[in-house]
Write a protein that binds this DNA or RNA. Structure first.
Lengths: 338, 338
DNA sequence: ATGAAAGCGCTAACAT
DNA sequence: ATGTTAGCGCTTTCAT
């Protein structure tokens, strides 16, 4: 934070300690061995002068910034907050700091991220696309050091950390069927989004599972939600309750919408799970604390975070591993809402 | 993300466009006027070569990084997620990206932030201290370009954005009294923290307000909570319900704990607000969606974010304004839980 | 174990 | 409107 022109340099520190910048650098980075006595003198000089390293200079020299970028749709969605938090923790182990970029799930912003316009000064990128999908491989150009989160959307040579969207959505849907529900709706469809997006995959698995159980889904049971926020869940549930023949169970494609749905139910005096069962997806911290506590899918968020950061670290280290696709485990967490 | 040694420089771009790096720089930063024709040629060359500016070099030269740091206790607390999101939005207007650093509310980490060890490559710092307080002014040394969030903890010459903790806590407590409650408890005390911390200020205001109403507070009605997380709220409420004479109203010092408290109530079949009223503090997005919806304090989070970023921008711009203390408006948001 | 010096890629002061 | 050049503060190769 030193102002330009008034900054203390390594040379200044060296001058005070009676050594050159070279030795100061060695002391501070700890790579080479330095005489303990010299070391002490240097550290004292650092302290006296209030020296702070200029990381731009270091980065320019080394080609490393010590920062990675996490590009996600939106911190209004609990899952992404949870993910960001976990990724920050994992990144700490690699001495990385994390810059979070919100794309708003908008295609133009996602392209901007990949083009580097909104992601400078960063050693690598962990990116959860939403609008981008197959056919957009051209935007990958120049992005080595990239890990894609979500489904394997690109054929190209990129690391993917893949959540078992299909399997998990089947699990959730089948659970509702097994509990005896027959009028099952879903909130979170988004027709304007790639077929590889979570929205499309979960919807497809939902439909398939119901079909497999010889259950039909009226069109009005598939509720579109553009943003997957609290209000989308509430609005979706309100719409379902307004139907002549409301569902007896609802699969919300994320927990945040499920919270909204639960609220809409309670506001109308409809009981969950007795009148309408609700199941979510994500198992975010809040899911345990709603009324009733939310039955949901645990998608392996901790693994996603760890794998993503480790994969990126391998890329940055330049290990010549071929692009990998990693899968995380999912499971059903039964609580009270369904 | 270009690897060292294989990176394309401005000179390369210039060579292809038939100009020097100087002109390329002018085109990309848009400061000086460039002939449209030249401009086009340069931009085409940028595209052809897949050129990406080296921001370390730029920062080294200009002394600006385009990044600010936001240091907060913890993203597990909804308020800080909400705040971070809003600050990111405000920062965008200044073309800043934001690095979030979690201090875990731990003193050593807060000192590390101020000392710059965990906050390099940044044009400024927005810092919500928790463990640090009066008497720790010495850690401010070398931190121009700093905005402190929370109460005015430092006498030193630093910008503060101050939330009206005392006034707001009075508002909340008085509301409970006015609604006829007499056995009022609080969750969120933290004796190990500075007297200027939110925990101490809110507790003090809580006590004062009850005293002013001639209401006594048994010691067991003041529940300590170290982390202010969901589980702290739930544990606190569980403890209160286990008392021989449980309270009929509880003031939770943040919304996140209030969510936990509401859960503890529901888990035991205790009704809110009928049996125990609950009031929170923060008015985070989720507060509107709990069952019952949470009555809480709106502390002016939007203002905090805007003021903090604007104040920091003024510091960075080097306007010689004297250190300012800015206050935000708070108000009571009545919903259903109290 | 330490010194001397080159150079990372960019911007800005000085030219023309 | 564009070319030339110095230099930001650091790391690292070549010395000793």
């Amino acid at each position: 934070m030193a102002r330009k022109g008034e900054s203390v340099t390594m040379a200044d520190v060296g001058a005070r300690a009676g050594v050159t910048a070279r030795t100061v650098s060695n002391v501070l980075s700890g790579h080479t061995s330095v005489r303990p006595e010299t070391r002490d003198r240097v550290l004292r000089a650092v302290d006296d002068l209030g020296y702070r390293m200029n990381t731009s200079a270091r980065s320019l020299r080394t080609g490393r910034t010590g920062t990675i970028t996490l590009a996600i749709p939106d911190l209004m969605i609990d899952y992404f907050t949870d993910l960001a938090r976990r990724i920050m923790t994992e990144a700490e182990r690699h001495d990385w700091t994390v810059v979070i970029q919100q794309t708003g799930a908008r295609r133009e912003n996602e392209i901007a991220i990949l083009s580097g316009a909104r992601r400078q000064h960063s050693d690598g990128l962990i990116f959860q696309p939403h609008a981008l999908g197959p056919g957009d491989e051209r935007y990958l150009t120049g992005n080595d050091r990239l890990v894609i989160l979500g489904e394997r959307i690109f054929r190209g040579p990129v690391d993917h950390v893949t959540m078992a969207n299909t399997e998990a959505a089947q699990l959730a849907t089948q659970y509702l069927v097994d509990r005896g529900h027959r009028r099952i709706a879903a909130i979170g469809a988004n027709p304007r989004v790639a077929t590889t997006s979570a929205a499309s995959l979960r919807l497809e698995a939902f439909r398939d599972t119901l079909a497999k159980n010889d259950l039909s889904v009226p069109a009005e049971y598939i509720v579109t939600a553009e943003e997957w926020h609290l209000r989308d869940g509430a609005a979706g549930m309100a719409r379902l309750l307004g139907l002549p023949r409301p569902p007896d169970a609802v699969f919300c494609f994320n927990d945040t919408m499920a919270f909204g749905a639960l609220h809409a139910l309670a506001a109308r005096g409809v009981r969950a799970p007795d009148d309408v069962a609700v199941i979510g997806f994500d198992n975010v911290p809040m899911a345990e604390f709603t009324t009733p506590p939310l039955t949901t899918i645990e998608p392996g968020t901790a693994q996603v975070a760890k794998q993503a950061v480790d994969l990126l670290a391998a890329r940055v280290a330049g290990r010549g591993t071929p692009p990998t696709e990693v899968f995380t485990d999912c499971s059903l967490v039964v609580r009270k809402s369904a």
